[in-house]
């Protein structure tokens, strides 16, 4: 199978990685659930401080790949893997890499917002408190900063002690993003972050994603191709556990190189 991957050695419309340092690098990665291969021979680089979207049909492996990026498969004993994943040059499976630290550096937001059953303030402060004692004033500052970064501060500043469950779905999702931001991640993984939200809340989350990329690397999995086209800088199309085509979103959505990509993004029968 041909894989259209963009490398520094190629020019023109391809991704020029010499211009963007990679935040994450996946090398010859394969993953199996028992006997069933979920990802095979996957190599790609995720540019730093850009939004990269993984698209593909259900079961193509995009969420599996996303979860592999912060080792969420570790507890599943049926999962086996080959190859490696590197965060800023460090192998994430290396013995010295602590999983808790990895997940601090690579945060994850899921499809359904999962605020903890506590106040808005405590949700955001939760991760900070896990890291050890911190002066209350400092916690206050980080909570405010995280809520502002998640574009939620103005909506909740007068009710920080209210239950997180009193927020709307869209607000809860932004709260979860604030909770993740509070611990200072480098990468944010988003698994269908807006699919359970109404269109306006979805747009707010998309706007937030766009704003966050000035300081974070974002990786987004979505079924919504228009959403991938709207918010991402680069798009990777996966099918049957393989990377089919990977390139600048502008190119992929106007002039994909491969018929398989064209068929998927235009809704044609394979």
């Amino acid at each position: 199978m041909t894989v259209m991957q963009h490398t520094p050695s190629t020019s023109g419309a391809l991704i020029d990685f010499s211009a963007h340092a990679s935040s994450l690098e996946v090398r010859d990665f394969a993953l199996r659930y028992g006997d069933k291969p979920a990802l095979s021979n996957l190599t790609l680089r995720v540019p730093r401080h850009r939004v990269t979207a993984f698209i593909g049909p259900s079961g193509c492996g995009k969420s599996t790949l996303l979860r592999a990026l912060n080792r969420l498969h570790d507890l599943n004993e049926s999962v086996s893997r080959e190859g490696s994943i590197h965060l800023e040059g460090q192998d994430i499976h290396a013995p010295e890499m602590m999983v808790a630290e990895l997940r601090r550096r690579v945060g994850m937001v899921f499809q359904v917002p999962n605020p903890f059953p506590m106040s808005i303030y405590d949700n955001v402060a939760f991760g900070l408190r896990l890291q050890g004692r911190m002066p209350k004033r400092r916690v206050d500052d980080v909570v405010e900063w995280a809520l502002r970064s998640a574009a939620l501060w103005d909506e909740v500043k007068d009710r920080l002690r209210a239950s997180a469950w009193s927020l709307s779905g869209g607000q809860q999702q932004r709260l979860v993003i604030a909770r993740t931001l509070a611990v200072g991640p480098e990468v944010l993984l988003l698994d269908e972050p807006a699919s359970a939200l109404d269109p306006i809340s979805s747009l707010k989350v998309e706007e937030l994603i766009r704003n966050l990329k000035s300081t974070l690397t974002l990786v987004l999995v979505t079924h919504n191709m228009q959403q991938a086209a709207r918010v991402s800088d680069y798009t990777a199309f996966l099918q049957d556990g393989e990377l089919v085509e990977y390139g600048p979103t502008d190119t992929l959505f106007t002039n994909p190189r491969l018929a398989r990509t064209e068929n998927y993004i235009t809704g044609r029968m394979a």
């Binding site: 228009q226 959505f253 106007t254 002039n255 990509t261 993004i265 235009t266």
Partner: peptide
């Protein structure tokens, strides 16, 4: 339809 790729073209 928000067409993409060859449909958009």
């Amino acid at each position: 339809r928000q067409p993409a790729a060859s449909d958009l073209r």
